[in-house]
Computed example of a mutant assay.
Amino acid sequence: MRNKKILVTGADGFIGSHLTEELVQQGYDVRAFVLYNSFNSWGWLDSSPEYIKKDLEVFAGDVRDPHGVKEAMKGCDAILHLASLIAIPYSYHSPDTYVDTNIKGTLNVLQAARELGISKVVHTSTSEVYGTAQYVPINEEHPLQGQSPYSASKIGADQMALSFYRSFETPVAIIRPFNTYGPRQSARAVIPTIITQLASGKKKIKLGALSPTRDFNFVKDTVNGFISVMNSEKSIGEVINIGSNYEVSIEETAKLIAEVMGVDIEIESDDIRLRPEKSEVERLWADNQKAKQLLKWEPVYGGKEGLKKGLKETADWFLDKQNLSQYKADVYNI
C-alpha cells in the first residue's frame, strides 16, 4: 500500500488516532475520517504534532450516512474501518445506536468499497465477540457469543463484512484485537479508570468485577497489527486475532499498575460498575498463532514484563497534568 491513499474511519478515537499518526510517520498518504461536530474538533488528532497534521487530510462526517461515507472513500485504495461505538455499559442504555453505527455504518463502508472498487478493507472486530472463553487460548474458530448489545452488534458487523467477501469478492480482512490499552484511552476502560483515580491522589479506587481475566494488548502492538493486515494479501477473507497471548485478572492488573506507579492501592467494589451476571465476559486469552504465521506479526509488549512496560508508558502519559485534566476521575463514565 506504499504510495496508495489510505482512509482511516474513527481516526479521531483512541486506537484510530495512534494508527493515523503511525501511518503518516511511515510515509503513507492518509485521509482521516472524523465524526462531524460543531466544534470542528478532530478528537485526539487535535493533539497530534504539527508535522502530522500538516500531512493529513481530514474528512468530517458520520459513518451512519452512506453518501458521506462514499464521498470520503473516493480516490482511496484501502480503508481501515475503526469507527464504532465501543462502550459496553452504554450499549445496555442505548442499543439502537449500536446497530445504526456498528452494523449499518459497516454496511455503508462495504457498499461503497464494492461500488468504488477499493483494493482492501480492514474491518475492526473485538475479542468481546467470543464472550466468556469456552476453551483457552481462544483461536479464530472459537464460537461467537453476544453477551452484550455491543458484542452482538460487532458480531453482526463482522458477519456483514465476511458476507461481502463471500458474495461479491470484496477484498475484506477482519482484525480482531483483544483488549487494547495505552495513552488516550477512554476512562470507561478499566486500565485508564485505575490510573486516573490513582493519578488524582486516591488510595481507595472503585472498580467492578475483579476476577475476570483479559488479554491486554498495548496500542503500539495493535497499530502494527492493523498495518500488517492491510499490507498482507494473505489476510483477505480471514479473521485474525491480535493479542498478547498472556492472561491476567483485573485485580492483578490493578496491583501491577499500583506497582509501576509506586503507590499503595485499596480496591472498593462499586455495584454500578458491574455488568449483569450473564453479560460479564469472565475470561479472554488470545491465541495469536494465526497472526504470527500469516502476517509475521507478534507483540513487542508480550507477557508480564511487556504488560508492565506498557502500563508504565500509559501511566506516564496520564500523569502529565495536561493529559489528566481531560479526564473526570471522580465520575463513572459509562
Rank of each mutant, 00 (worst) to 15 (best):
M1W: 11
R2K: 15
T9E: 07
F14W: 09
E21T: 15
E21D: 11
Y28V: 02
A32H: 08
Y51D: 15
Y51L: 12
D65F: 05
V69A: 08
E71Y: 02
D77H: 14
D77L: 06
D77V: 01
L80Q: 07
I86E: 12
P89I: 04
H93Y: 15
D100L: 05
I103E: 14
V122D: 10
T124G: 01
T126H: 05
Y130S: 04
G131L: 01
T132M: 02
A133G: 09
P137D: 08
L144G: 08
K154M: 09
R166E: 15
P177Y: 02
F178A: 02
G182S: 09
R184D: 04
R184H: 14
G208M: 03
N217A: 07
K220F: 14
G225M: 08
M230H: 11
E233R: 12
I240P: 03
N241K: 12
G243M: 06
S244Q: 13
S244G: 10
N245Q: 14
I257D: 03
E259Q: 13
V263F: 11
D264K: 15
P276W: 09
S279F: 09
S279A: 14
R283F: 03
L284P: 04
W285M: 15
Q289R: 14
K296W: 00
Y301L: 13
E305W: 05
L307K: 09
